[in-house]
Write a protein that binds this DNA or RNA. Structure first.
Lengths: 232, 232
DNA sequence: CGCCCGCTTGATAGCGCTCAACATGCGTGG
DNA sequence: CCACGCATGTTGAGCGCTATCAAGCGGGCG
């Protein structure tokens, strides 16, 4: 029933490295799980006990300081991998931003399975290298960009990453209209800003006719060129 | 001569996954290279043609905006791996901060070798996962910490990472006295600050008796407890 | 000795944070 | 169906931290 055969991310997730028999045995150690928006799958600082693939929805990876400041250190989308295989504790919490479905494995089971299937480890390595590249690019934004550049960059990144889901093939895999999976506070936590600064940048961009905001959670990019210029 | 047998990072680098025969064939496709401080090994945006292991020295990974702002996105130490295997372009430059020696491979050769040696890929995966964790922790610093917290955190991290080299076994693998491999500008580029702010934080910490600065490039941590408190 | 580069120190300004009031939307219950 | 309350987001006023601009210092090297 919950077979991998009909999994919508079957050909994009790391599972694509496996043949039919291998998929079946992987299926044996994993299970589906649904999350409602706001629900956490993993908490910061706990032992790494599970790993997972995202089937549907958007989740955040976040860490914070003792005095309550928070920073979102990553956002994962369908077909992305979650968790810390091969020992160690998880340094960041994982929380659903939208309702989500994931395919979870006990870390021990997954570790053993992966070690016996180099093809899977190879896919995981590629994914991890890509994620590291993306994270490093984000460091430039956090360390060196102004608030307006941060917000513009954020919207452009989102329009890229959400494209497969919204599927409006106007701009070659870039969505010009989408629903934000983030509250204003969460956007602030991604960009290292405050909620007020994010809000002001949104209204400014709307005032300049670069974006439109039909509702709190909806964004339309009306002038992608100008937005790209804003992103620095 | 340049055999891996006598390599000082032989047991710490990813090569430790290999047996004697495998090491020999890896030796066949790699070569040693020396870099002087300031010399670049890889440039931002170029095709990924090389990968390497660090044998000796410290190197920075950095990216910048078109208008000249720079952000250091990683720092690598002996036994660390450099470069982007398995396709793609390199998103950041790699430049020696000190004189350095590295063990370089053509990326194509390395890719092929790695795919035939799952143990090596496994080590590389572990290393990449660890680096991703470290990078994400750094995002909290860039996005949410004040200048004083940034500088304190930086000094503590350095005292950890430099410990194997300085080897003064007083504080369980943490060096209380070390030579900075960074100029003030480079420290600013790591922390997302300006050179002036870094300088002011240094003199403040010295004034409060938390650190001592015998010369521009030397640091002594005189009150680790207070420095840890400063780091937030 | 004198220049040059890296660093420090000082004065000022501006960006983004803080605190606060207000708006909007949504669910709940009368 | 409207009244109300709460959560989320917007707008405003003022301030503080860090950037910016500028001058001075000091050590190393020709």
């Amino acid at each position: 029933m919950s077979s991998c055969d009909q999994c919508v991310v079957r050909n994009r997730a790391i599972c694509s490295a496996l043949d039919k028999d291998e998929i079946n045995s992987l299926n044996g150690i994993g299970r589906r799980r649904s999350l409602v928006a706001g629900e956490s799958l993993i908490w910061e600082g706990e032992d790494s006990v599970l790993v997972a693939n995202v089937i549907e929805g958007v989740l955040k990876l976040s860490t914070g300081t003792e005095d309550g400041r928070e920073q979102i250190v990553g956002v994962v989308y369908p077909s992305d991998f979650i968790g810390r295989p091969f020992g160690g504790t998880t340094n960041h919490g994982v929380t659903a931003l939208t309702d989500a479905r994931v395919c979870v494995f006990s870390r021990g089971d997954f570790d053993n399975f992966a070690r016996e299937h180099p093809g899977l480890e190879h896919k995981l390595l590629q994914r991890t290298l890509t994620e590291l590249d993306r994270t490093r690019r984000w460091m430039l934004l956090l360390g060196r960009k102004s608030a307006s550049e941060k917000v513009a960059s954020f919207l452009l990144e989102l329009s890229d990453r959400l494209a497969p889901a919204t599927c409006e093939p106007g701009d070659e895999g870039k969505a010009n209209r989408f629903v934000l999976p983030f509250s204003r506070q969460q956007i602030a936590d991604v960009l290292g800003l405050t909620i007020e600064t994010v809000s002001r940048q949104f209204t400014r961009l709307r005032g300049e006719g670069i974006i439109d905001l039909p509702s709190r959670r909806e964004v339309i990019i009306t002038d992608r060129f100008a937005l790209t210029a804003e992103a620095g």
